[in-house]
């Protein structure tokens, strides 16, 4: 099954709704707690990145027999140096976002850590595409 969520840039009222929606679907299907926890962390972090840094974007959940896939796209400012952005502690969050508890420089590292496959492509000025895969039985068969 697939389910797509629209994400609006700077819409902190709806922020988190996509991640909560993803979690509810995975719970209703009956996945194990650990994989739900990992997908939820990644869905939340990626959704918040679009809200904070992106122009509008989308989060697509794909559920198959052996894997859960999250694809997140936005048409925002893009990432100039992906390697640097993946370093824990590096952040380009604004002062306003830091005041709200974002900008720890943990977003992308959290996603990388909690997914089994983590792919990112981005160009400055051309948006960002993220694809994360979670193996349902802990290993790929």
């Amino acid at each position: 099954m697939k389910k797509e969520y629209e994400i609006k840039a700077r819409d902190f009222v709806r922020a988190g709704k996509a991640a909560i929606g993803v979690q509810n679907i995975l719970k209703s299907i009956g996945f194990e707690q650990d994989i739900i926890r990992r997908v939820s962390i990644c869905a939340y972090e990626s959704e918040m990145n679009v809200v904070m840094h992106g122009a509008d974007g989308s989060l697509l959940l794909g559920v198959e027999n052996k894997e859960i896939v999250l694809e997140v796209r936005d048409s925002g400012e893009g990432i100039e140096d992906i390697e640097l952005a993946l370093k824990e502690g590096y952040s380009t969050a604004s002062e306003e976002h830091r005041d709200m508890g974002f900008g720890a420089g943990m977003g992308l590292p959290n996603m990388k850590k909690h997914s089994n496959v983590f792919e990112i492509s981005s160009q400055k000025g051309n948006g960002t595409y993220l694809r994360m895969v979670f193996w349902v039985n802990g290993n790929r068969e």
Binding site: A15, G16, A19, I20, Q23, S40, I41, Y44, M100, G101
Partner: peptide, 15 residues
């Protein structure tokens, strides 16, 4: 937490 803004709610709900 000292955070009182609305983003704490989604975090609490998800966890």
């Amino acid at each position: 937490t000292i955070q009182g803004h609305q983003n704490i709610v989604a975090v609490a709900a998800l966890k």
